[in-house]
Design a protein around this nucleic acid. Structure first.
Lengths: 217, 217
DNA sequence: ACAATGACCGACCGGTTGGTCATTTTAAAA
DNA sequence: TTTTAAAATGACCAACCGGTCGGTCATTGT
């Protein structure tokens, strides 16, 4: 009366995870369902027992990837321990960028996401993938900025502008990452980040800092 | 002994230009050679008399697009006329971003380029498309920065850092453009650019500016 | 032993693709 | 007008695509 009972949820997840690996090799459009099935080691028909289309599959695969990236937060524990908010901002930025740059997989996920976003925006809009992806990062920056204000390191009005500042930081980082990807030898990533952070600090720091009073126009 | 003698170079260019239009409608992968041929108003076989593969064609099409973008420089004439280097930087950035954002075609070109860069990097590396694409923009920033130093508006040491500053500006702009594309309603483009430029100005401006002396640490 | 059931599969389908090539069209040369 | 060869063509092709489906298999309760 009862044959093998598989954990359907787990299997679905396994297939999605395997499909992610497959898509990461050549990208979504250039990876056929036959290739995906072969990579996972499962019949193509089986995949269609769990997903109703290739699009469904890639979205599930992408969600697996997003969950995976959350686990990374532990890797940033030492950075969160940095006392000085400005130094924490700097260290976080450098670390995030270098982590992405050194992980072909992370880059590929970003690229696939971008491609899908371009090719079928309607499918992605309602999933709020973009928001889920960047919200935690922006939140980190906002929190750190507010902490800096509390500690008297940053100007008070930074508190009001915190989110807009965070948006600019994230935009800069992704842009730098993009250019580094497009032309890896053109500049030194760390150097550019430090320059950006130096500039940022000028606009953030409290009027009273060690070294003297600064007249802001 | 000699029938129609076509200007092969011109025809090749015409086909590439027509193919560009076709690809811009639905993207590279989703546009078949039959569609391209029909769009141009030419037999599919003819295309293969001039290009040996679809990949060849899209690269040629892309080069046509790059040449076209140079002509745009005229649109920036009023910006070049702005006297104050800092205001020129600001106006240029805003205009470039809004131009791209409002031009589906420009965005599509960027997207197609990015996809090809990802899918067949080896074909693109030696074409130095990235360098040719960004060099003029970076050069504008470098020139304007140097001019600002000459006019005494920017600090003298900006001259040495000019290229690195330019890299950061371009990175920021492309990152902002990317995020605006991914999530159009999240922030106001112009506001973010202005904030960035305000910060930039803090780090660029000469020590003697109207309003008082500033102590740089 | 056997019936029942869900998991699993790969041959198969209609459709589309990038690419080919035998044929026709064209207009200058004879 | 006839000849000629480059230029243009679209019917055609093998390969492949995403997706379906009838059927096999392993495991269980009876």
């Amino acid at each position: 009366m009862a044959p093998i009972l598989v954990d359907k949820e787990k299997k679905k997840r396994d297939i999605a995870a395997g499909a992610l690996e497959a898509f990461l090799k050549l990208g979504f459009a250039r990876t056929s369902m036959n290739q995906v099935a072969k990579h996972i080691g499962v019949g193509k028909g089986t995949i269609y027992d769990y997903f109703k289309s290739k699009d469904d599959l890639v979205i599930a695969a992408f969600e697996v990837a997003m969950e995976g990236s959350h686990a990374d937060n532990e890797a940033f524990a030492p950075i969160m321990a940095i006392e000085n908010p400005m130094e924490r901002l700097r260290a976080f930025s450098v670390t995030v960028l270098e982590t992405y740059l050194n992980s072909r997989e992370s880059m590929q996920i970003g690229i696939i996401m971008f491609q899908l976003m371009v090719e079928q925006p309607e499918r992605f809009k309602h999933l709020q993938i973009i928001q889920r992806m960047f919200a935690p990062i922006r939140q980190f920056f906002v929190d750190t900025l507010l902490e800096g204000v509390e500690k008297g390191i940053f100007r008070k009005d930074v508190a009001e502008r915190a989110e807009k500042i965070a948006i600019n930081i994230v935009a800069f980082e992704d842009g730098l990452l993009l250019h580094k990807f497009l032309d890896p030898d053109y500049f030194d990533l760390r150097e550019q980040v430090n320059q950006f952070m130096d500039n940022l600090y000028l606009s953030l720091r409290s009027e009273t800092v060690e070294g003297g009073i600064i007249n802001w126009i």
